[in-house]
Design a protein around this nucleic acid. Structure first.
Lengths: 228, 228
DNA sequence: AGATGTTCGATTGTATACAATTATACATGG
DNA sequence: CCATGTATAATTGTATACAATCGAACATCT
């Protein structure tokens, strides 16, 4: 039994705590609960038909994922993401995603590589059609495959944690068809580098991919999806 | 109020949960609880004179810090650190510590820089005397100053989280006087690079510092302090 | 009016009782 | 003897009652 079963544990949907956790997580990522909104134990417990105990424990897990912040004797608040946070997140990710791509080049399985190729070709279709929703899903999956392929549970968990932020940032970013096409092309290059066994190139491309993604965010600006 | 007050909250020593959390944290880091040992809610509650509720919540926080793993309906287990984990931790740290040193070069305050200088000079004394305990403390502090100085709460928290592992790895590593002297010299060079405003050099040195630290661990080998 | 107490409601913190689950030992059948 | 089933004890999961804390509104004093 490894410590990395943590993620398994978090996906435990069959305990009340697990159900509360998943529901709240989804609601926060979907924006049902706004940034800095206070989450009250009884209110959420009543809404889901459970007592405060599993709610409190779900809160601790959400804090673990960085989605809420618990202030003693006060309450639980949905974390806000500032422009500075976004900058830092992409700075850190650019380094870690690069590292991940490099490692993935040497550890990826044929099955994973095939799924990666499939992903890129499917995404190129949706990119050309401007299907942003599908693009987001495929982008999530593309990076997730690389996380698994890098053969480092440490790095995989770390990048997976950051991905929470990415989903939320995406909601605050104008996603254009142009960026979708460019992003797909970058994915293709990363995939090709991995396929032809060029770790340094994969690293460089993945790092640059993050820089480009951040530049796109800056170019279009961040906005709060609820303030419009 | 920022999300980064999370760390403040964790240091809340005046609630029962806070007390339990700190006690368990210390005991795990000190090795009172061995790796993979099961922590039982009632036993710990009785030992500290509290009920299961604060213990359960403290468990969630310890999981947050990666010190234990909670398996649903089974129990809480002290996480083990494998040789592969150590490798991954230092790989990731080498990148992040470099990034941190680079940022610190541009954001460090005169006070922080002064404490850094003091730290290095005091450590050179203890290094020459072979006072390994004091060296460990000063090393913790040296890196902590840089984390604060980088002016990125994201990066600061991330590196701070990794530091838990560093403390535990240190207990499994033979620390020699020679490595203490070399490490101190590396700290001095990093400090000088920051002082003279050379971000790229600071980054390169900090990255190499981690590589050297890891090489030292590999050279001396890891051992379980309890198996001797 | 402004500053300072004070009361009271709302909310979180903790203890405890009970339910659900798991693991172990033992019994039973092939 | 091994596999399977079952009872039981230990442990975690959840609900609830009560205590402690915080904050806002109101009252009081200067």
């Amino acid at each position: 039994m490894s410590k990395y079963d943590v993620k398994q544990e978090v996906t435990d949907k069959y305990s009340l705590r697990g159900r509360v956790f998943h529901k709240l997580r989804e609601d926060i990522l979907n924006g049902k609960y706004k940034e800095n909104e206070e989450l009250k134990e009884v209110a959420i417990g009543e809404e889901l038909g459970v007592s405060r105990t599993p709610v409190r424990e779900a809160f601790r897990q959400l804090e673990l994922e960085g989605l809420i912040q618990i202030v003693p004797n006060k309450g639980a608040y949905v974390t806000g993401i500032t422009a500075k946070d976004v900058k830092d997140i992409y700075m850190i990710r650019s380094s870690l995603e690069g590292m991940c791509a490099r490692l993935a080049t040497e550890h990826i399985t044929p099955e994973q590589l095939e799924e990666l190729e499939e992903n890129v070709y499917l995404a190129s279709f949706h990119a050309s059609k401007g299907h942003m929703e599908q693009m987001a899903e495929l982008d999530n999956r593309f990076h997730h495959i690389l996380y698994e392929a890098c053969d480092s549970k440490m790095l995989e968990n770390l990048l997976q944690d950051f991905h929470q932020y990415v989903i939320r940032i995406r909601r605050k970013t104008l996603s254009t068809k142009e960026r979708g096409i460019a992003s797909n092309e970058e994915h293709r290059q990363i995939m090709e580098a991995i396929k032809s066994g060029k770790p340094e190139e994969a690293e460089k491309l993945a790092t640059q991919h993050m820089v480009n993604a951040y530049d796109n965010i800056v170019k279009n600006g961040l906005y709060d999806i609820f303030e419009s």
